[in-house]
């Protein structure tokens, strides 16, 4: 059988909020090491890679590897039924046709069970090579959210230009243009507020606002976001999920026609 328990259902709620605008359905691969999801949006422009390690769960048991196709919108609806302080347990039997979500209140006086049918899915798996990136920038996730939102008003895409001094985000359109420069923070006293630039080569890349504004929905998961960039390759936008894992978004750049 498969059973995974998290004392804080809020973590799983936030994870669903972070993927539901990009994915309608996804396969959850469950094994001894944890739960993994790799799924592209319908247009194959972005990819979500979610990793939740088994040791991050409060209880975890997976007797045999399972691939469970799930409707993200249905899962999201179910998780909205969990109280903020509830514990969540996911349970499935071997060769399952459904998965059960069990929510338990902190004082254990309320127990709610929701069963969700699994779906058969053809899945396309992409081999993503381990790459060293020309620029890796760490910055507060709230700042990144704000920049994507603000610059989206000016155009359909945002250009990221990174040098050793910092990173510049810019957008332009019919009404005008805007750019925001962030300098690397001199002292990293406050880790959550730090902007750290690790640059081997300067990069300049352009990305669609629509996808970036989906990625920033992961902001509530982590105070910092990490952007990994090389010229003419997909962006990696990573948010840590506490001590349990991470969510990575890959986004194909806009390239010269």
């Amino acid at each position: 059988m498969f059973e995974a328990r998290l004392t804080q259902s809020a973590i799983l709620k936030k994870v669903l909020d972070a993927v539901k605008d990009l994915l309608s359905e996804a396969t959850f691969e469950c094994s001894d090491s944890g739960i993994q999801v790799q799924a592209m949006d319908n247009a194959h422009v972005s990819l979500v890679s979610l990793n939740l390690r088994s040791d991050g769960f409060d209880k975890y048991r997976c007797d045999r590897n399972l691939s469970m196709g799930m409707s993200i919108s249905c899962m999201s609806k179910i998780l909205r039924c969990a109280g903020a302080e509830d514990t969540v347990t996911l349970r499935a039997w071997d060769s399952p046709e459904s998965i059960v979500f069990i929510f338990e209140s902190p004082n254990k006086d309320k127990l709610a069970e929701y069963e969700m049918k699994l779906i058969n899915m053809d899945q396309e798996h992409l081999g993503i090579p381990e790459t060293s990136y020309s620029c890796v920038v760490k910055m507060p996730s709230a700042e990144f959210t704000r920049i994507c939102r603000d610059l989206s008003q000016f155009g359909e895409s945002i250009t990221f230009a990174c040098t050793k001094e910092g990173i510049k985000f810019s957008a332009s359109g019919d009404y005008g243009s805007a750019n925001i420069k962030l300098a690397q923070t001199a002292d990293a006293d406050n880790e959550e507020e730090a902007i750290i630039v690790n640059m081997q080569e300067p990069v300049k890349l352009t990305f669609s606002c629509r996808y970036l504004n989906c990625f920033v929905k992961a902001g509530p998961l982590c105070n910092q976001v990490q952007l990994s960039m090389s010229d003419d390759v997909p962006l990696v936008c990573e948010y840590k999920i506490g001590d349990i894992g991470h969510i990575r978004y890959y986004l194909a750049p806009k390239i010269d026609d």
């Binding site: 194959h44 798996h125 081999g127 895409s157 194909a252 806009k254 010269d256």
Partner: peptide
């Protein structure tokens, strides 16, 4: 003018 690329331009299907 820039056009949107897709991930399958960069990553191989496995």
């Amino acid at each position: 003018k820039k056009k949107q690329s897709t991930l399958t331009d960069f990553f191989k299907k496995s």
